[in-house]
């Protein structure tokens, strides 16, 4: 990693940790001076950017912005799935799954591979029919599939314009909103090439931005962080909390259990049994 890239990464990591931007600039500038004076490689002098940013954050005693401990009264029920049953051939994938999510809540759908997490999400989105059961939906829907969902030959701005037009947004507004969401995920889509040339992680960012465009009330996200680096993963959860605080209803499929303390509802689809527990 060269010095500029390291400094840039440090800047991002500091920002992510909620360090005051002015202070972050000072820290980065000071590190730059030190590196020039000492002629050392950044990794040798300071270690990885995220570790150094963590040490800085600890020193200045800034609150590490994690899940905001917000507990306002839950809003109205936005998504209600009742008795969802789905069989693939003769194998029962979902057997009577219930899920209720309110405005301003995040529900995590967890479980082993192949236990029907994506199927449940697609059923909630209306992209697949269940064998039994129904889904009640209050409001507009945004859906982020696990893969696909983008057009190989279009550039990100065109994706924003396309989704925006569906939501009744003007093109300029859609592109601006898309770029703003992208910036929150530490991605600058201006001048990015066609979607087929984007890396896996970046394409997922595009996917996620498309899902959030036009402010849908309910967001269904199917493991949208695949291919994200650690920093983007942190950004992703911060975006989720921002959406929650804005009163959105979020259902996110995940197999990473380290974030479960930061969601409101956990639906465990581990085979044959379904349990819904209030976190």
């Amino acid at each position: 990693m060269n010095t500029d890239a390291w400094l840039h990464a440090l800047d991002g990591e500091l920002r992510r940790r909620g360090i005051d931007p002015a202070l972050a600039r000072h820290v980065v500038a000071e590190a730059a001076v030190h590196l020039r004076d000492s002629r050392q490689a950044p990794l040798a002098a300071f270690g990885p950017p995220d570790a150094y940013a963590a040490a800085v954050a600890e020193s200045v005693g800034s609150p590490v912005r994690s899940a905001p401990h917000r507990r306002s009264a839950p809003g109205p029920v936005r998504l209600e799935a009742r008795g969802i049953v789905k069989r693939h051939r003769r194998r029962t994938v979902l057997s009577g799954v219930d899920l209720t999510v309110r405005a301003g809540e995040i529900a995590a759908v967890v479980g082993a591979n192949g236990c029907g997490k994506s199927t449940l999400l697609r059923i909630c989105a209306g992209l697949e029919s269940p064998d039994r059961g129904e889904v009640r939906l209050r409001g507009t829907l945004g859906f982020c599939p696990q893969d696909g969902g983008t057009s190989d030959f279009l550039v990100p701005d065109e994706h924003f314009a396309l989704v925006g037009a569906g939501r009744g947004m003007r093109r300029g507004a859609a592109v601006r909103a898309g770029r703003a969401y992208a910036a929150a995920l530490d991605w600058d889509p201006a001048g990015a090439g066609q979607a087929r040339f984007l890396s896996g992680g970046t394409r997922q960012k595009l996917n996620l931005v498309m899902a959030g465009l036009g402010d849908p009330d309910v967001l269904l996200l199917d493991e949208p962080y695949q291919g994200f680096d650690r920093g983007s993963y942190v950004d992703f959860w911060r975006q989720l909390w921002a959406w929650r605080d804005a009163g959105k209803t979020i259902v996110v499929v995940t197999h990473l259990l380290d974030q479960l303390d930061r969601v409101d509802t956990v639906l465990d689809l581990t085979p044959a049994r379904t349990t819904e527990a209030r976190a």
Partner: peptide
């Protein structure tokens, strides 16, 4: 002393 050790001390 590494920069990564020194500057956090200075900030504190």
């Amino acid at each position: 002393i590494r920069g990564g050790t020194l500057y956090p001390v200075l900030l504190r």
